[in-house]
Each structure stands twice: as structure tokens, then as C-alpha cells.
Write a protein that binds this DNA or RNA. Structure first.
Length: 485
RNA sequence: GGCGACAUAGCCAAGUGGUAAGGCAGAGGUCUGCAAAACCUCCAUUCUCCGGUUCAAAUCCGGAUGUCGCCUCCA
């Protein structure tokens, strides 16, 4: 497959170095608060990459860390009067709740920063020994950025440009404003670990370098994360790891684009901030996941509840088609009438196109276009009396279901039982619209009675009443169903 | 100020040299007691603008305009 490599700013053919094994490291969360929709995007993107690589037959060693000690965690802990470790544990738990709802598969390894202090001390010592780092009197250890040739190669910056923006904060003992902390001496009251340089804790960038090296043979095949992490975090990881090992750190750098609100970056200060729970209070996880996949992973994605509602309609249409296919397959008698080869051929073409889209830098938006073509194809067969009753039609339906099963496993959607999912989706929409399903059923029963008596005036009056509640009635041979208009 | 990304229909969005996927919305039709859903048909001679390269450009190059991001913690 082809993947966009931030390091070279172009798409490149992806091949792992060790035969069939893919080593993939993705920066995980800092556990100090609930996850927001940006975390959802990043998680979904790399989950799809993980699923797709496995689908292609690779053995994927997927490492995703937890930053469980950090300034923000300490600050939060102080605010609520808890231990930093308790805060981290709490929000790691909340993280899993959100990830599970979004059908994010668990990575192969999920190392925590605090469980790898010895590895980080060792790496820091190595960097000091090789002249890439220095301790300060107050117990900090800094990485000497100018000692590392190639600093800036990922983010496309040169060191002198960076110099102009950097400054030394009061109290810091850096030799150069560009230098960054590998180890931070503990301030009074802060959690700490013993080190050769005194009590302290690791700097944020260090953990990813130390844990990558521990859980994978460097260089990594893929290193991923949000676009904002490319500088300085990923740049610093490269500096640390390459300075220490003398080997390239990662062959492919993959960065997902940002979630924006009204074309602006989401941030707490702007007040345009949504947690995953804010969304899932109103919409099904499937809807959010589908929405996130309708745009290419590198593009900025504008989030709004209106856009989510539009995505929801797409999800509904796909499941409606799958439910109809299931209904057809539930029949027992099949005719020997001929089934056009073109339809089977078209399905095969769509499967190829889907694969091509995924091969081309994980183009899920393009792939979903082909999914809809399959939906229309299914509709065409379901619509045709002869086709849907034929032996060939039955085989077509089975092949279509198999295709959806495969696509669903890659994208992490379409995996629910269609009829049950449609009811769940409708109830979700009804709850949002403030509709009482029991009241709807009452009116539906009354309407059914009127229809039985051919009292269409009364039947239509009831339907108007329902419509006023935003309930849309759909008469089928099996009785009336409803949805939110 | 430095670096970078993006600009495709009413809206969302694929498409990186061969003549504009898909979704939502909209129009007409089939079906229906009438509807709805589903299905069929239609809906960008054109890809922000101006130049250039090429037999051929939404795609490559140069310029302009606009939007956003990074340069500080950030998915």
C-alpha cells in the first residue's frame, strides 16, 4: 500500500522491514481529562490502519502508550486533591470506556510511562555519555539540540529559525533556548523517582523513545500521531532515539489532520470543545465513527452536529439496504431463473475499487463511495422480482454480505445486526427529537385499525398528527414502521 | 515574522497528467388507497483567480487572493 510519509512529504510504497512484521507506534493520551473528538479521530484513524494492515496479512505489533505522569496530571491532581497516579488511573479507565464504544481494537502493547522509569533513566544516561545531554545543578537533564545534526528534518524547520522563537523561562538552566528536558527535577510536593541527578520525573518526549525501543526493533516501520505532535514532540523523539542508537528512528511518519469547529481549531479556550461523551450522549458511536471516516485522514475535518446528522442518514441507508438483503435471504424458495452476470461483475469491480482506495493512503472516503455503489446495486436486485427470487440472486446476496463483512471489519462499522441496529438508530433519533416511542405505537395502532376499516380520512389524520411530532410512517406488507422525519 | 497545508456543485467530499466518485439536499418517474422508504432518471462543459509547461491540466510550474494550522501544552 501507499502511505503519506510526513518525513518526505509524499506518498510512498509501504513495506515493513522485517518480512511480515509491522512495528507501529502511536502516541497515546495524557491521562488527565476526558477524551475529546480529536482523540476520537486519531484513535479511529490508527485503528483503521491497524485493522487494514492485519487484513493484508501482516502481523502488527501496535504500541500505544499512556502518559501517566505529566505537568497537566499533577495540576489536575492538585486541583481535586488526589494523587497524580489516581488521576491517571481514573482517566485511563474513562479512555477505555470511550474507545470500546467506538469499536477501537486494543493495541498489542499499551505501556505506561511510569512503568518504564528505568528504561528512561538508561536512555538519559546514554545521551549524557554520548555528549547529547547535560544535567543542571538543580537536577534537570536537558537534551542539547544543537549537538544533534538533522534536528528539524521531520517538521521542515531549521535550527536558526527555531532559535528566534525559543526562550529560556526564568529558573531554567538551559545552555541553549532550544534544549528540551529529558528529566525534570522534582519540585516540592510533586511525585518523583530517584535518579543519578536527584529526585525527579521524566520529560514528556522521553517516554516514546524509551518505550519504542523496548517494544520494537528500531527503526519503527510506522510512527503515528496527531499533526500537532510533529513539532516539537516527534522531532524530539527522533533526536533522542537517533542520537542514542545511531539508527533511524522510524521509516514512516503518519499524521492525522485536526478536527475543527467552524473551520477553527477546537480548544478549551475558544469554548468550542466537545468530548466524545458529549457526542455519544446524542448520537450512536457508529454514526460518529462513520462520520470520521467520510473524510480523508490527513484533511482537516469540520465537526458540527448538523454534519453528524447528515452522516447518520448515510449510515441508516446502508443498514436499511443490509436489512433488506437479510429479509430476502430469509426466504426459503429460490427459482432457477437466470441472473445477469453483469451484476456479479459489478460487485467484483466494487470490491477491487474498495481495495484500491484503501491501498492509496487509506482513502476511507473514497472507499465509502464504493460502499454506496454496492448499496445501490443491492437495491436494484431487491427491487427486481425475478432477480431477488432467483438462485443467482441468493448467491449475489450472500456475496454482498460477505463483501460487507470484509469492509466492515476493516472500517470497524457495519458490524451490527441490521434490523436491530435500525431500531436502535431510530430510537436514538427519537430520543434526540423528544419523541415517546410508546405514544407513537399507540397512534400507529389506532391508524392500523382505521386503515383496516378503509377509513382513510381518519388514517391520514393520525399520520398528520404523527408527522407533527416529527414521526414519519412507512407502510410495509408486514405492517407500519416509523422513523424520525 | 518563519514554515506548512488547503481552495472541487446549494452543502459535505473523493479524485496528483487522459477528459469530474460518492453522500446529503433538490426535480421528475415506478411503487402506493394516498404517502413514506426503496429503485430508475436528472442535477459541475467544469475544479478560487491570472499566467505558463504539455498533444492533453482539477491534477505539474509561477504569481495573486482567501481560509486554516504549526513555530508554547495539545490528537
Amino acid at each position: 500500500m501507499r502511505l503519506y510519509n510526513t518525513l518526505h512529504r509524499k506518498k510512498e510504497e509501504f513495506t515493513p522491514q522485517h518480512d511480515n512484521l509491522v512495528n507501529m507506534y502511536v502516541c497515546g493520551i495524557t491521562a488527565y481529562d476526558l477524551c475529546h473528538i480529536g482523540h476520537a479521530r486519531s484513535s479511529v484513524v490508527f485503528d483503521v490502519l491497524f485493522r487494514y494492515l492485519k487484513h493484508k496479512g501482516y502481523e502488527v505489533n501496535f504500541i500505544r502508550n499512556f502518559t501517566d505522569i505529566d505537568d497537566k496530571i499533577i495540576k489536575r491532581a492538585a486541583e481535586v486533591g488526589k494523587e497524580a497516579s489516581a488521576i491517571a488511573e481514573q482517566f485511563i479507565g474513562e479512555f477505555y470506556v470511550d474507545m470500546d464504544r467506538l469499536a477501537i481494537q486494543r493495541p498489542s502493547v499499551e505501556p505506561k510511562c511510569t512503568a518504564h522509569i528505568p528504561e528512561m533513566l538508561k536512555l538519559t544516561q546514554e545521551l549524557i555519555d554520548k555528549g547529547y545531554a547535560y544535567p543542571t545543578p538543580s537536577g534537570d537533564v536537558y537534551f542539547k539540540v544543537r549537538a544533534f545534526e538533522g534536528y528539524g528534518k521531520l517538521s521542515g524547520r531549521n535550527i536558526d529559525e527555531l532559535e528566534s522563537g525559543a526562550r529560556i523561562e526564568p529558573g531554567e538552566e538551559k545552555q541553549d533556548p532550544l534544549d528540551f528536558a529529558l528529566w525534570k527535577g522534582a519540585k516540592p510536593g510533586e511525585p518523583f523517582w530517584e535518579s543519578p541527578w536527584g529526585k525527579g520525573r521524566p520529560g514528556w518526549h522521553l517516554e516514546c523513545s524509551a518505550m519504542s525501543e523496548k517494544y520494537a526493533a528500531l527503526p519503527l516501520d510506522i510512527h503515528g500521531g496527531g499533526q500537532d505532535l510533529s513539532f516539537p514532540h516527534h522531532e524530539n523523539e527522533i533526536a533522542q532515539s537517533e542520537a542514542a542508537t545511531g539508527k533511524p528512528f522510524a521509516n514512516f511518519w503518519v499524521h492525522n489532520g485536526f478536527v475543527q469547529i467552524n473551520s477553527e481549531k477546537m480548544s478549551k479556550s475558544l469554548g468550542n470543545f466537545f468530548t466524545i461523551r458529549d457526542i455519544l450522549d446524542k448520537f450512536l458511536p457508529e454514526t460518529l465513527r462513520y462520520f470520521l471516516l467520510t473524510m480523508h485522514y490527513r484533511s482537516p475535518l469540520d465537526f458540527s452536529f448538523d454534519a453528524l446528522e447528515e452522516a447518520e442518514k448515510g449510515v441508516r441507508r446502508i443498514y436499511a439496504a443490509l436489512a433488506q438483503v437479510d429479509a430476502e435471504l430469509a426466504k426459503t424458495a429460490w427459482k432457477k431463473s437466470p441472473f445477469p452476470e453483469e451484476i456479479d461483475a459489478e460487485l467484483a469491480t466494487l470490491a477491487t475499487s474498495f481495495a484500491e482506495a484503501m491501498e492509496d493512503d487509506l482513502n476511507t472516503a473514497g472507499a465509502l463511495g464504493h460502499v454506496f455503489s454496492a448499496v445501490r446495486l443491492a437495491g436494484r436486485v431487491c427491487e427486481d422480482k425475478n432477480l431477488r427470487k432467483s438462485e443467482g440472486g441468493r448467491e449475489f446476496f450472500l456475496r454482498l454480505k460477505a463483501a460487507f463483512k470484509e469492509w466492515g471489519a476493516i472500517l470497524g462499522i457495519f458490524e451490527h445486526e441490521p434490523a436491530a441496529f435500525l431500531v436502535e438508530l431510530r430510537n436514538n433519533r427519537a430520543a434526540r427529537a423528544g419523541i415517546d416511542p410508546a405514544r407513537v405505537q399507540e397512534l400507529l395502532d389506532a391508524r392500523q385499525a382505521a386503515r383496516k376499516d378503509k377509513d382513510f380520512a381518519r388514517s391520514d389524520a393520525i399520520r398528520d398528527e404523527l408527522l407533527a411530532m416529527r414521526v414519519e410512517v412507512n407502510d410495509t406488507p408486514q405492517g407500519a414502521t416509523w422513523d424520525v422525519a
